[in-house]
Design a protein around this nucleic acid. Structure first.
Lengths: 226, 226
DNA sequence: ATACCATTCAAACGTTCGTTTGAACTTGGA
DNA sequence: TCCAAGTTCAAACGAACGTTTGAATGGTAT
């Protein structure tokens, strides 16, 4: 990317891409601190110094891993919302949920594992101890989040804004845990493993659950304290 | 605790307790790998070698942190379920949910921060990269989980077992994310910070959301594929 | 051919990690 | 009083970490 503005067309970022792919997988498997630069560069089949050369530091690599996928994904989420609103439909809560959830699950199916690794990494990162990472994720999510919040407010005019914020948090939690825990945690026995990879079925289940939770009856319309 | 079977009554495990408390807080703040033995022992005001002397290793300390709180908490969950069943009430899904959720939130309120640290640490650990930790948590949860699954099956006889397992997963995800993210992630703007610490209010909100999701209507009673 | 620049490479940097060591200290029972 | 066991302590261990360095390499335009 130096010298002339439009440049080589052959492998412009081959090494970068290999590093990002390896990082995605290893960060998912072992965490950000648990995955070392030596593991990472060995898996990517590049020199140890390549990460620092192309990204500057390990932290910058982590940021690049998120930016590569999160920006397009949230843009797609916003576009999905635009499409619904442009269709003139009544903008049901369930349709909004499906637009948001679907974009995550779509990524699980394609990219022969690449997107799946990232989705599971992402699910884990919402509860990441490292503050800079949480801040980064929050920034990358902010625009799409604002749009969806506004959409829910219009679809549910009778819901108090404060209650809506809570329920969006709950929904987000369900999604992120489900993505992170897919074939990872097995707290409840009896899961059919083959189902876990069927994104369409999972989308239906998740949407039904979340839509019911979001539109649950309000018990205490103006509750203040005990 | 060697020598005679019943022993000193003064500070039987003072150092151990101080280490566990410090570990709980630092693991929550920085993660298991991010919190070093030197930070940890400095915060506990004990010698660096004390952890290895009393627990054997850092991994054994992590396990001890979980066992100290998780065993009593899940025992309390089981007891809460026993109490509901003994009362002769009709065993509503909402009551079961409230018993499970309430036990987590109860711990947030008391212990002037001690329990709260653990609850948030726990929320993060469900998506922990380290496999031994996930396995340990699964083991410690298994007995209570079996009881609750059976209770839900009786309270919702019309629900297919497979669907129930999924919805329990969703519920667990919502709870764990909510606990971990309390005043941590601020993905959606507009949260009232003071509310985040009111466990009673949070319990009501969570229970309403989860009960609605759990009992959501079944769209595809015997759905197989697309 | 030659000069140039981006990239790759092996080697080493200093730091921090979890753990171990062996001596000092405290304490309760013969 | 003295011993022995439990505990604390300062110091050091080797290993692994992220990063830096400076020379070799490869392709492109002059």
């Amino acid at each position: 990317m130096p010298a002339s503005p439009l440049r080589t067309v052959k492998p412009p970022h081959e090494t970068r891409t290999r590093i990002l792919d390896a990082a995605e997988e290893l960060f998912m498997q072992h965490g950000f601190e648990g995955a070392s630069m030596r593991q990472l560069t060995a898996k990517a089949d590049v020199n140890l110094a390549a990460v620092n050369y192309h990204f500057g530091s390990k932290d910058a690599l982590i940021e690049a891993v998120f930016r590569r996928r999160l920006d397009p994904m949230n843009a797609a989420r916003t576009a999905a919302l635009d499409a619904i609103e442009a269709s003139g439909k009544p903008l049901s809560p369930e349709a909004i949920i499906r637009a948001f959830v679907g974009e995550s699950l779509r990524m699980i199916e394609d990219a022969k594992g690449g997107g799946r690794n990232f989705i599971r990494l992402l699910g884990r990162s919402y509860t990441e101890p490292s503050k800079p990472i949480r801040v980064l994720i929050g920034q990358l999510y902010a625009p799409a989040m604002e749009r969806y919040k506004a959409a829910f407010e219009r679809a549910l005019p009778q819901m108090p804004p404060e209650e809506l914020v809570w329920r969006m948090h709950f929904m987000f939690g369900t999604l992120s845990y489900t993505l992170a825990a897919t074939d990872v945690v097995q707290l409840i026995a009896g899961c059919k493993p083959e189902d876990r990879h069927d994104a369409r079925l999972l989308e239906d289940r998740l949407t039904a659950f979340l839509a019911a939770g979001l539109t649950a009856p309000l018990k205490h319309p103006v509750r203040k304290a005990a």
